[in-house]
Design a protein around this nucleic acid. Structure first.
Lengths: 351, 351
DNA sequence: CTGAAAGCGCTTACAG
DNA sequence: CTGAAAGCGCTTACAG
């Protein structure tokens, strides 16, 4: 079980380590006989090259790092596919790494860069607040995708994102335009400059601009962004009080949980309560009812992030790119009807 | 932008590299003054240690590798969470890597192991067929989770999985028990010893054991495992022919696509067509109608895989652990009614 | 076409 | 408590 090194292979094959190295790296200037012998030895002794040692020597890898924040965000998957395709098309490879919610993605990035394995980095998701010093530490070009930094100088980084405040206001205004006046806001993780906080800001702004008083009591907080959390929270809320005719959930997943919660409470979507999502994930189109949502232009954004990264690697300057999201009408939101509440059954689930 | 190394830090701080190394690795035997000076220098020059170099020296890392096959399989997410928790509880860390569909996970594993960064590996998903030689190449303990190897000696590996043939037969027999005789099979990627092929095998077996002739024409093939593929494929099929009263989809996601396709074809689930899923993902509980499905005991399986890995690392022997899945009744399957077909509207969608 | 040697950036006995 | 030195497994000029 001891590790087989390039030295062992060289000895067993009766050649020098340089020759083995050449064979491994597919250099052309190796005698066919020799190559064959080395390959056989590698096979026999089950040799696997040590990438750590290799990357210690190699200077210019054609690798680009992609750091995905959080494992469970299905929203990133499509973007990831686009990013990968774009990068591979340009002749580079992708080094994909996950960063858990409580890890610092900038520190991880600095490590990736220093290990010399990547010549550029795309951050897929991350914190809106970071220490300038951590940003400065990353010594390769990088781009933030789906977020930006609020507490650093804009010249320090590039980012591709949507304006969460404006898009959230757009969603809220749509519900208002349908006649809704009592709109609940379903969210999780509302802390300073979180996505949730930004979307809450947009929600408030839309209410105020429409002359509707903001009611703290209409904020419904779920424990997490999981379906189950949206479901449970909405059920509990409906048991206590039903003082809204529409719910604006800050993610499609929460919206779906809310829909099921409403239905199991004996009410119907959208007849009794309209439900609006956010992000425009695939599932929202195929849910029943399909979810009206704010769709982020994921493909365009992902492509842009790669393009911007290559510009930076080519000596370009940092830039902020803000995309517009589109309101996609599904079946989950309808015009407010005065008698909606009356239609409702008393309570009780169906599952 | 040049790389700052431990040597630079040592020089700038006026100490030896060993001292810098000690500070970085939090060794206690360093003078407080010295430590402070080194820390300051690191901060000033934005030094980040090179992990490649480090892992070249370090022998016993407390890292366990988790190789996830395919980026877009949401089914793995919950397992991943459990695995991570279990491993961290034991004082180890997780090194998470994705392997794309067309990459060889065993080769990747051999690399991980040789780089000496991990002392054990869990494969979350992978091919049912692999070369013995690739298996032999991995020189640390490892466990396959959610799959096994059909063409290698059982003593060569450990695996934790469900019997796809039996579980698939269970699903099919359930539909048969509800009176369905014309059951379509919705799948993707049916090749030799793929999950789809195994589940197809179970489907056939159930039919035959129930005295129902297998009808090749009832196999509906989607291009991919995505919702959209299930949706589109079912719509097209219904446009051409409606010769079944139930669909057994080999994943919940395909089942959901099928449901939406059926509804947009002017039919209803389950009144006109019953739909059965597989896997038991969260979304199946919250869809409308909720999806009847075969639920894999993801938490137990994930826990078992970690336990088995630690046994192996402790000198234990390889073992195969087959779990039983549970049929969870949702709202998407009901008893076959003779007049079901008549109820159907002519055609046409609603979206 | 091939091999000996230097060196990538670290850690770790070893000797003070 | 600290530093000089060896060595981890590779790659790459360099000299043949």
């Amino acid at each position: 079980m001891r590790k087989v090194t390039i030295k062992d292979v060289a000895r067993f094959a009766g050649v020098g380590v340089s020759t083995v190295s050449r064979v491994i790296n597919n250099h052309q200037d190796v005698n066919d006989e020799t190559r064959k012998k080395v390959l056989e030895t590698i096979e026999t002794y089950k040799y696997t090259p040590n990438n750590s040692a290799r990357s210690l020597k190699i200077v210019d890898t054609m690798n680009i790092g992609v750091l995905v924040k959080g494992i469970s965000n299905t929203f990133y998957v499509k973007m990831l596919e686009v990013i990968e395709k774009e990068i591979v098309d340009k002749g580079y490879s992708v080094v994909l790494r996950h960063v858990s919610i409580d890890e610092n993605e900038l520190t991880k990035a600095a490590e990736l860069a220093v290990e010399n394995k990547v010549c550029g980095i795309i951050f897929l998701g991350g914190n809106y607040l970071s220490k300038e010093n951590d940003v400065l530490r990353i010594n390769v070009p990088f781009v933030f995708l789906t977020f930006t930094l609020f507490n650093c100088n804009y010249s320090m980084f590039s980012s591709v994102y949507i304006n969460d405040v404006i898009e959230s206001a757009k969603a809220t205004k749509y519900l208002i335009s349908l006649g809704h006046r009592h709109i609940a806001f379903l969210a999780a993780d509302v802390y300073n400059y979180s996505i949730a906080a930004l979307r809450l800001e947009g929600y408030k702004r839309a209410l105020i601009e429409s002359g509707i008083a903001f009611d703290e009591g209409l904020i419904i907080m779920a424990d997490t962004f999981e379906i189950e959390a949206g479901y449970r929270t909405v059920i509990e809320r409906l048991k206590a009080k039903r003082d809204f005719t529409a719910i604006f959930a800050i993610s499609d997943i929460l919206a779906i949980g809310a829909c099921r919660g409403i239905m199991e409470s004996g009410l119907s979507v959208p007849e009794d309560i309209s439900v609006m999502g956010f992000d425009g994930q695939d599932i929202s189109r195929y849910y029943n009812p399909s979810i009206t949502t704010i769709k982020q232009p994921v493909v365009d954004m992902a492509e842009k992030s790669v393009a911007q990264l290559f510009e930076l690697m080519d000596g370009g300057t940092n830039r902020q790119e803000i995309f517009e999201a589109n309101l996609v009408e599904g079946e989950s939101c309808i015009r407010y009807r005065k008698n909606a509440r009356i239609k409702a059954k008393a309570s009780g689930g169906s599952m």
